[in-house]
Amino acid sequence: MHGKALPYLLLMPATLFLCVFFLYPFALVAFEAFTRDGGFTLDNFRTMTGNWKFPVAFWNTILLAAIVVPIQLVMALLMATVVSRLETGRGAALYIFAIPLGISDLAAGLIWLAIFDQSGFLNTLLSNLGLVDRPVMFLGYQSKLTIFVAVVLAEIWRATAIMMVILVAGIGLIPREYHEAAEVFGASPWKRFVKITLPLLRPSLQTAIILRVILAFEVFAVVAALGGTNFPVLMGETYNWQFSLQDRNVAAAFALLILAISVGLTLFFLRVLRVPKEARI
């Protein structure tokens, strides 16, 4: 049991686990996406893109990610900066900010549904204040914009903290002397943030953005709760094809498309936010 074989033997259980529970299902999905009735084909992808809902779902997902992630990034930076500056109550603030993380995305969607619903909190509030005569249909099929806004709000509320936690850890890694040196050498608080904190935070920003972007393209339960079928997204369509339309091959094609987008964007951010080895802390 000694010598060269040992490290590989120790890696074996984890490798087996990955192969059985990740690689095998992935291969299966990929196989299904490119076959129909036993033969290789691209028909599944044609069916996918040919469906009238596809462009809507595709652009909804992109738009959602493009709006939610930047807002979350700015908010997470702000929250992380505030938390890092706190001298007392840091733990408590971090904990409170992170509470939404402990709630499943479907539950989060339902909480916001309880707010925006026809008999929800918002309508009750508005009618009690005498601002509306009868309940407003915020999430009806005609009000795509309010559904979109509601989803954006719910997503921001639910998933900003994950970025914040990563950024708080990252800010903690920057030695205080850099900020002090910048301060002595004439940088205002804003300049210090832009010239010192942001560049030195790049590794953490990279992690936070990649993680958040991948999650943004997998958005499903919040949208399902708030928009139902009125607001199609890619993951929702995957679910739809798999369970309602009973076509697992097209569902697999959707899954592969989401994977491709995630991988593509991950590579993009890895490259754009790369820190050269010599310029690391």
């Binding site: 002397e177 850099y178 002090e180 040196a181 301060e183 050498f185 940088a187 560049p199």
Partner: peptide, 20 residues
């Protein structure tokens, strides 16, 4: 006054040479 308005420069113990 903040440090930047004091007409000073400083050399830090750990140098604080910006890595980026």
């Amino acid at each position: 006054l903040p440090p930047r308005d004091r007409g000073i420069a400083m050399v830090f113990q750990n140098y604080a040479v910006f890595p980026h």
